[in-house]
Amino acid sequence: MTGGARGEGNGGGLIQLTAKDFKSDQEVRWCPGCGDYAILAAVQGFMPELGLPRERIVFISGIGCAARFPYYMQTYGMHSIHGRAPAIATGLSVSRPDLSVWVVTGDGDALSIGGNHLIHALRRNVNVKILLFNNQIYGLTKGQYSPTSEAGKVTKSTPMGSIDHPFNPVSIALGAEATFVARTIDTDKKHLTAVLRKAALHRGTAFVEIYQNCNIYNDGAFDAVREQRENRILLEHGMPIRFGADGERGVAQRADGTCELVEVAAVGEGALLRHDEHAVEPALAFALSRLAHTPHGPTPIGVFRDVERPVYDEVMQAQLDAATAQRGHGDLAALIGSGDTWQIG
């Protein structure tokens, strides 16, 4: 339980923590081969970069396989109830702006039972980092289709195939006024870490969809991008969007604003769309998110959007400060005696 973090602020940059300092004493109990292991290792590996002592970091989760995550982190943590982690994290974050608050959630947790809390946290721009482990299946309840499962998916609850049209998590986040939206892959530690770094630096809500393989109930759901690297359309700010084994393919924008995949040789590099993650309007980011509704072919990976907007927590604090500056610190006796009073005796 000891470690370099104890009692130190984050002002001096003296904290020398390692991934090991963020491992709790609890035995990790995901299925062998689960993508969650890789994400846990990447997050623990990234945590020292925050430059914060462990006690200033909090992980909050809902219910599902991913939701066990906080138990394995040697930080403060709460494993709460299904879908509600963004709401709980909001209360913590706005009342404790000194903390770094992270939400770990899954596709069922965030997009089905907790969909309302997710979109409202995003539009408010509360200072929480939301990591959505998307495996396109309900794992902990043993294999029912999820809100991101592809249409037609045969599962225990859909023996004739799912008749639901799936959500695209990145499209949802962009539509919900999110200020930071990214997508990454469980096994690509380098890319995952780079995205976490940008998410952590972002002021406000950061939404990170992580493709996570459930090798028991939905094995290979992301192979098209996880294994076939040529299908990864890597989004890099300011760069023309190219992909393929030798960058021979690219993304161009049609006249109607939608995006299409093109052969660079056919259209010329000048016709390629140049990625702008700081674009004020989310229209281009949204068009990019529509290139792959579910990851079965070329799919964009990286930061779709990263813009600045007032942070909910900070604005709330500013209102408190302004009220106090205007009226002084609240005086209870004056408050209860306000309005019309009268004396007896």
Partner: peptide, 21 residues
């Protein structure tokens, strides 16, 4: 000015959830 934070949530569940947080 009493340091009171009021959070008008998206629904009743979020309201009490934020309070738990």
């Amino acid at each position: 000015s009493f340091g009171v934070r009021t959070f008008q949530a998206e629904d009743e569940i979020a309201a009490v959830g934020a309070a738990v947080g």
